[in-house]
């Protein structure tokens, strides 16, 4: 028996969310008195995979097949299922990412496992039951969910688990092959287009986010958002109406019908705080709101606020951040 952890890599590096997933998985292994093995997908280097020892991983399986560098739902599912069989995995842990959810849902059927996505805490295993806490109602609630059956799959929400760092520990990297055939690559991409992201910080992985709404008045003013984001090392985001009118690209749209983010710091500039917007951001650890209207609903969901004009306040904040270092 073991716990199998799916680690997503990109450009040779292990994604930050996957370090959290690895830490989650190794703690589950400890809880169940077993070992933690990882299977890596995407483009990885052996040196970076070995460093997963710091997150409590004993062994990492890696298939060098070049076609696995990009996400392919069919092939990833088969690879992970094969790893799960080999390792006799009773619990599989992955990221609650687009890749993790797409693969996890197929795996749950193939391995006859129960599945919980959007999980925010380590499981509780009292009295032989296995219960996880997950986000529901678009960030407006949580649900404790009991997972039945012999095998379980858990998709862990980003930024809900602290990554472990046990310096000096290394994992053994073992090559692994799942005998993939052409049929497993039916949904292989013809082309991959990566976003041109300001400062190279991806919104779903970001620790800090600076977000703008209709109060920014027009796309020509986004330099104010970008300057603060750059000074902080933050990603940029926006409200729905802003992406609807193409002031900003769609992948920056956060909220109930956009992406959900849970950074340590979310700074909302000229956003009213409609319930659909809050749904996508209210699991952020600290929320800062800048709005000229003291009655804006966002202040009720905020930790810090400035009642003021974004055009006046944003440059001051950027300046103050620069003075910090």
């Amino acid at each position: 028996m073991s716990v199998l952890i799916v680690v997503e890599c990109d450009g040779g590096e292990v994604k930050k969310s996957s370090l959290e997933v690895a830490s989650y998985g190794s703690q589950v292994a400890q809880l169940l008195g077993t070992s933690a093995t990882a299977v890596a997908v995407g483009e990885a280097t052996e040196a970076n995979l070995a460093k997963l020892g710091e997150q409590g991983i004993a062994k990492v399986l890696y298939d060098n097949e070049p076609r696995l560098k990009d996400f392919v739902n069919g092939a990833y599912t088969k690879l992970i299922a094969a790893a799960a069989q080999q390792e006799d995995a009773k619990v599989i842990v992955l990221a609650n990412s687009n890749i993790g959810a797409a693969v996890g849902s197929r795996l749950s059927v193939r391995l006859q496992a129960s599945l919980a996505t959007n999980v925010v805490e380590l499981p509780k295993t009292e009295g032989g039951s296995f219960t996880v806490k997950r986000g529901a109602f678009s960030g407006k609630a949580f649900a404790d969910v009991k997972l039945d059956g012999e095998r379980k799959i858990i998709a862990v929400k980003k930024n809900s688990i602290e990554a472990l760092h046990e310096a000096g520990k290394t994992a053994e990297v073992v090559s692994f092959s799942a005998q993939l055939t052409d049929a497993d690559f039916a949904d292989a991409p013809k082309q991959v287009v990566m976003q041109d992201q300001a400062g190279g910080i991806l919104l779903p992985e970001a620790d800090k986010v600076v977000s703008g709404g209709r109060g920014m008045k027009g796309p020509e003013n986004w330099n104010l958002i970008e300057d603060l984001a750059q000074a902080l090392g933050a990603a940029t985001a926006c409200s729905k109406p802003v992406s609807d009118v193409d002031w900003r690209p769609h992948h920056e749209h956060v909220g109930q019908t956009g992406i959900t983010v849970s950074p340590n710091l979310y700074i909302a500039c000229g956003i009213s705080g409609a319930i659909q917007h809050l749904a996508g951001v209210n699991s952020s650890k600290v929320i800062v709101v800048i709005n000229k209207d003291p009655e804006a609903p966002f202040f009720k969901a905020a930790d810090y606020g400035i009642v003021g004009d974004v055009f006046d306040v944003l440059p001051k904040l950027t300046q103050a951040v620069k003075e910090l270092s």
Binding site: S108, A141, F142, K146, D148, F299, D303, Y304, G305
Partner: peptide
């Protein structure tokens, strides 16, 4: 089904916002 909701809960309420005057944004 393979899963069952044992209980729902609401997130803890925010403590209340700390306001900083705009003149003092830094």
């Amino acid at each position: 089904a393979r899963t069952e909701v044992a209980a729902y809960a609401l997130p803890p309420a925010k403590q209340g916002v700390k306001l900083i005057p705009a003149e003092n944004a830094g």
